[in-house]
């Protein structure tokens, strides 16, 4: 069995962290590939049930960033 890779769901605010992620990409910075980004209109859109839904569907971690 190959090395286990964590699945992390990242809820990123469109105006903040999503922009940062975009900038990181444009600047060709390296960061871990285990993150699945979900863009939300604002961190205020975040709901506890989103975090739970992610875990329920098998995510290993949840990252909310505004």
């Amino acid at each position: 069995m190959s090395e286990w890779k964590p699945k992390i769901v990242a809820f990123l605010c469109n105006w903040c962290s999503y922009g940062a992620a975009d900038l990181a990409g444009v600047s060709r910075m390296e960061y871990p590939p285990h993150i699945r980004v979900i863009r939300i209109p604002c961190t205020g859109r975040m709901d506890p049930k989103f975090a739970l839904a992610a875990l329920r569907e098998g995510a290993d971690g949840v990252w909310v960033s505004g």
Partner: peptide, 27 residues
């Protein structure tokens, strides 16, 4: 398993740092 952070759209370096931290913590 659950992380929360504030990263501004200009802070790509912080984004990369936090992404690494989160991944390592979950790993």
């Amino acid at each position: 398993r659950i992380h929360l952070s504030w990263v501004s759209s200009a802070e790509s370096t912080k984004f990369v740092r936090v992404a690494k931290e989160v991944t390592e913590a979950v790993r």
